[in-house]
Design a protein around this nucleic acid. Structure first.
Lengths: 188, 188
DNA sequence: GTCTATATGCAGATAGAC
DNA sequence: GTCTATCTGCATATAGAC
């Protein structure tokens, strides 16, 4: 538990986090990560045996951030609809990154979904962190089929992120956010 | 234009098409394609210099299929809403493949969107083939903001395909199709 | 056209000196 | 812990015989 040892681990995970988002998990190499952290590949392998353990660490870091964020939103807004709109606001706040690199969750899960089952099981936890929270908001609104509503909300957000990314088109994202917000407002 | 030469080319493109869908473009190797077609890697390189030309050929094949399909749908249904519902029916018809491998368009574009700009420009043509057709249907319905409606429709479909793929969950897809159809019915 | 053989590069991963 | 050196495997791609 040496302080310095912990620090380098954090720097590695942070570098991997950025590289996974900007290059994709498969395109990211140990050499890439080592270069950013300014250590050698061999040293990096001392800290993380393989790519899977690196992914695990990155996902855990993201999970901690997501959970903290949701707690914050719960405290910040008492109205469930306001909380859901805060979720949409997040898309707008990060519109530049979304257009360039896609959704950090969606793009990673999509990349791992085709064949790499073990890795997908790890990255899917990111969605799992959001879904119950979303469902709870619809439950609080006393809306029927709250699970289905949560899924629809998340689906629409992912679809918007995917399309605006493929077309590098901010306008697409903005318009989708408007439509999703209208859908929220149309609910009882 | 020798018949036999054309035939092997078609077999290569068909094999690549399947492998790109089921394994992903980057995970697919020349060795994979050669094995399916039962030729050697060297021979495959004689027909396609590099992966980009293979992708180009695959996309062109898919484009031809899409265009033919849209012409068919136009002939089959006179009502624009029926045509759009036929699009949703396609998702249901291929639900097993969607759950396993995702949307052939969406997963390919997502994979290429992060860094490989040249390849993305090729694969995006697939979306470009659908979008004007979708917009035309909303135009025929005399619906305002038909372009935005087409984008929303496609976004929702892509979101549904992504989520049902990541969760390997047919129910997710089915429910989203129901919701999207309700959205269509709610339009004037 | 199709093959074998090979060049080249980079990936993930390991061994062992310091 | 961090380094250098190296192994192994597989990828794209090319050369040249048949």
């Amino acid at each position: 538990m040496k302080a310095k040892g912990e620090k380098i681990r954090e720097r590695i995970v942070e570098a991997a986090n950025q590289l996974i988002y900007k290059k994709g998990f498969n395109a990211m190499s140990f050499a890439d990560v080592a270069a950013v952290v300014a250590i050698t590949k061999g040293n990096l392998h001392y800290h993380f045996n393989n790519k899977e353990s690196l992914l695990q660490a990155v996902v855990e870091m993201r999970l901690a951030a997501i959970r903290q964020q949701l707690i914050l939103w719960d405290a910040e807004f008492s109205e469930p609809k306001q909380r859901l709109k805060r979720f949409l606001q997040m898309l707008l706040n990060e519109q530049n990154e979304l257009v360039r690199y896609g959704c950090p969750m969606g793009s990673l899960n999509m990349e791992l979904a085709k064949q790499q089952t073990d890795l997908l099981n790890i990255s899917r936890e990111l969605f799992d962190a959001y879904l119950p929270w979303l469902e709870r908001q619809f439950l609080l609104l006393k809306i029927k089929q709250s699970e289905q509503k949560a899924r629809h909300f998340l689906s629409m957000a992912q679809g918007a992120a995917l399309m605006c990314h493929v077309y590098h088109d901010q306008a697409w994202l903005l318009q989708e956010c408007v439509v999703i917000e209208q859908w929220l407002d149309s609910l009882p």
